[in-house]
Design a protein around this nucleic acid. Structure first.
Lengths: 197, 197
DNA sequence: GAAATCATACCGACCAGTCGGTATGATTTT
DNA sequence: AAAATCATACCGACTGGTCGGTATGATTTC
């Protein structure tokens, strides 16, 4: 039956997430993943052509989740929408906490492999455009000064990336949710439509 | 004689930097480093107790370099100093380009080893305080509104970290030096001492 | 009973670190 | 100053173990 097959696949994905989170992409061996899943190596390679392939499935899934939760934020005006998204950060950070390290480790390796790299960087470009569009809307509705939307979006993404990275690398270092809120306030004020230069 | 000894050590450090940059911390084998240095494995372990130990020497060196070049920026007013530092980013990014990936990879691993972790995160906290102090100076001199200096510093560091990371992961994605300048301008405007909220 | 699914045994490559031993050159002895 | 002594620097084969992936055969499903 394909019932069992699907379940095996799901168990492998689950187990892999746990192992990768605990030990990182390289350190987590295929064997340990199989053990965690209560499944054999044969099953593993039946469902996934390689360790890398399984990993990309996890990555894709996570990004989809994030985009989904970002889409949930919908205030009337763009600045409020952005602030609303900022409030989601602790939630994202919670899932990032276990995932980001392994994904970063993976990306760091992927840099050297053109093939994999394209697949990895592409969804990230989507974020860039997503925010650029949002900021353009903000400019159109008069919330923001007429700055370069793309540059502003990149700045925003940089801020987010930096916050996420630090939140993961140094969780004790600060209240990163609060830092995000403050940072966003500064950013918004910097973009605000008003008076002198 | 110690002349040769010092040279061997230097050659190892040089070679290690190259290998780590090319292949990453884990992928670069001690053997390949030795080969690159034209030196034997015995020499390696004579000079450094482990691969990790050598790495930490490289890390320390790089951070010292960066702090040095940041200290070189000294304008009268804080906003100008910060802008000046931003202009240094391409220069830092140049050295970061080959170093950041390996350091990130290393840090990602170090998370799981309390011992190593302290040594790795400490210099980074210094940056945090460095900028917090700078911003406090900016508030004192009346350039900035009286925001929470620590939060603002964290925001600034987040921005910098995000920019560096993206500059390394996606060098083709944008002119990151220019993005940095724009981002800094937004940030400064957001901190500016003036009018309404 | 054929096809899909899974288990076990195994292969080849790799690698951090060790260890017995050698080269080099400084210091002491004669 | 030549010889003996010694410490430091270095060499490279070797170990013990890991891991991604494969080959082959058993079991389950339809």
């Amino acid at each position: 039956m394909q019932q069992r097959s699907l379940q095996t696949r799901a168990r492998l994905l689950d187990a892999a997430l746990k192992c990768f989170a605990r030990q990182g992409f390289n350190a987590a061996s295929v064997e340990s993943i199989c053990a965690e899943a209560g499944v054999s190596k044969g099953a593993f390679y039946h469902h996934f052509p390689s360790k890398q392939a399984l990993f990309l499935v996890l990555l894709e899934g996570w990004l989809t989740t994030i985009e989904g939760s970002l889409d949930a934020a919908h205030s009337e005006r763009v600045p409020d929408t952005l602030l609303e998204m900022t409030d989601l950060l602790p939630l994202i950070l919670e899932t990032a906490d276990e995932r980001l390290p392994m994904f970063l480790e993976f990306m760091l390796q992927a840099i050297r492999e053109e093939q994999v790299w394209q697949a990895t960087i592409e969804p990230y470009h989507r974020f860039q455009e997503y925010f650029a569009a949002l900021i353009r809307r903000g400019i159109a509705e008069g919330s923001f000064a007429g700055v370069d939307a793309d540059a502003a979006a990149r700045t925003l993404v940089s801020l987010a990336v930096g916050l996420l990275l630090q939140g993961v690398l140094d969780p004790q270092g600060a209240d990163w949710g609060e830092t995000a809120r403050q940072g966003m306030r500064i950013f918004l004020k910097g973009l605000k439509q008003d008076n002198d230069e």
